[in-house]
Nucleic acid binder design. Structure first.
Lengths: 239, 239
DNA sequence: TTCAAAAAGTGATGAATGTCATTTTTTACG
DNA sequence: CGTAAAAAATGACATTCATCACTTTTTGAA
């Protein structure tokens, strides 16, 4: 295992780079971004940024997993998205020139890089191709968010749970043999906060799915036993 | 009244221009956009574009009102936003280089301009300040959509209806004396499709609000009698 | 290893809201 | 106008799901 010291490697050598928005950036630009970045290990439960505060830079997830969420006026958490290695956080607020409208907290320990706002904006405005790529990404995410809205507005909790499990399997399924195991340690409460329901309801529905042999529960992690069955639950149940 | 012919005026002279994303565009660019645009009157019920089709240009609403919505797999409509004079439609898909992910249908007759994709993209890529402004807008809308998601996921239907009425009053309230009258002809069904509920539920809650003297119903249009009361309903009811 | 705290799970209950069936009112068109 | 069709309204009923109260299991830190 590596030591905790000196986890700061150049962006050019970052393993997550290839799949990230930085993938096609020229070396010069990447070096410029690397220059003033800081990289810190975050433990589970630590928060990267809070809703309502001013963004001062861009987070890049080197390793680990993060939940991005809003707290409603009643104090309930709604998870907007999950982020993993290679993902960026905070660019929406930087581009819209607003405060953060969500918070981000680590759910699986890992290393996060932080690129100062000025460096990021400089590259953004200097490199039109990169700006287009970022704009394209934000526009794409708006489309995703619209789809999520429709799902929450119109599907039952049961359907949403099934759909969420499918999505999680696609995003966090292991490689090869164990591809049915959803490799992310979400608490039942987190799962409920993705779906927009009560923790107890998630627990009940999960054991329902389990007794239907759609999934199996291995401690915290969930294994998908019947993918097609889950898809059926997600699309049609009860309506 | 003007005739139906020749409703095509230059963008430079468009009354909605001042409040639109085009407000700070140099005259040259505006003229370029004007060049190949077409302007057509649309009647209530006519559709500007359909979900799943390829965008070939940008719509600009000269007058009238439009609903933008998605149809869920069960065939139910979910309204994502309402658009009025000066608003643009279709730029998300143009920027993300995707098909439309929503449909747009006229709910109040009016004139719509249509700027070919190539002209719009040319200005967008020629004028970095304008591109930034568009990107900023999309990022801002992503923030709004995230907020809507939380509202739908966590607030009761009653709260959402109250919140929607407040929003409608702010956006479509008349000038001066009659500022409490919500000047948009939404059917109960449309209102239900904004909120994400059944038409009957909206009808019942509206008459509830009416008997509480929060609103009055003047045919299709709604008048807000007790703004603070509605805000209270929107924030706290029942939780 | 132990023990307290957190998370998961279970059961009972009621309120909110969806659905269906029907009536009344409004709209729009010939 | 008159009439058919659409929209609004109302009632009865079924269902989902949130809530609360509690038990069991797991976790993690001393």
């Amino acid at each position: 295992m590596s030591t905790k010291k000196n986890i700061r490697i150049p962006c050019t050598l970052c393993p997550g780079k290839e799949h990230s928005l930085f993938s096609e950036l020229p070396k010069d630009d990447l070096d410029a971004l690397s220059q003033h970045k800081t990289c810190i290990r975050y433990k589970k439960g630590q928060t990267l940024f809070y809703e309502g505060t001013r963004p001062m830079g861009l987070f890049c997830i080197n390793s680990g997993k993060v939940k991005v969420y809003k707290i409603s006026s009643e104090g309930k958490e709604q998870i907007l998205k999950l982020a993993k290695s290679g993902d960026f956080l905070g660019y929406r607020a930087l581009i819209s020139e607003e405060f953060y409208n969500s918070s981000a907290t680590v759910i699986e320990e890992g290393a996060m890089c932080y690129i100062p706002k000025s460096d990021f904006l400089e590259i953004l405005h200097k490199n039109p191709a990169f700006f287009r790529k970022m704009a394209k990404r934000v526009a794409h995410e708006l489309g995703l968010m619209e789809q999520k809205l429709v799902t929450i507005a119109q599907k039952s909790v049961r359907e949403r749970l099934a759909a969420t499990l499918i999505m999680l399997k696609e995003t966090y399924g292991m490689e090869g043999e164990e591809s049915d195991l959803i490799d992310i340690a979400l608490s039942r409460e987190d799962l409920a906060n993705i779906i927009g329901t009560a923790t107890e309801t998630v627990i009940r529905l999960l054991s329902d799915f389990k007794s239907q042999k759609l999934i199996s529960l291995q401690g915290k992690k969930i294994k998908v036993l019947n993918h097609k069955g889950l898809i059926r639950e997600a699309d049609f149940y009860g309506r």
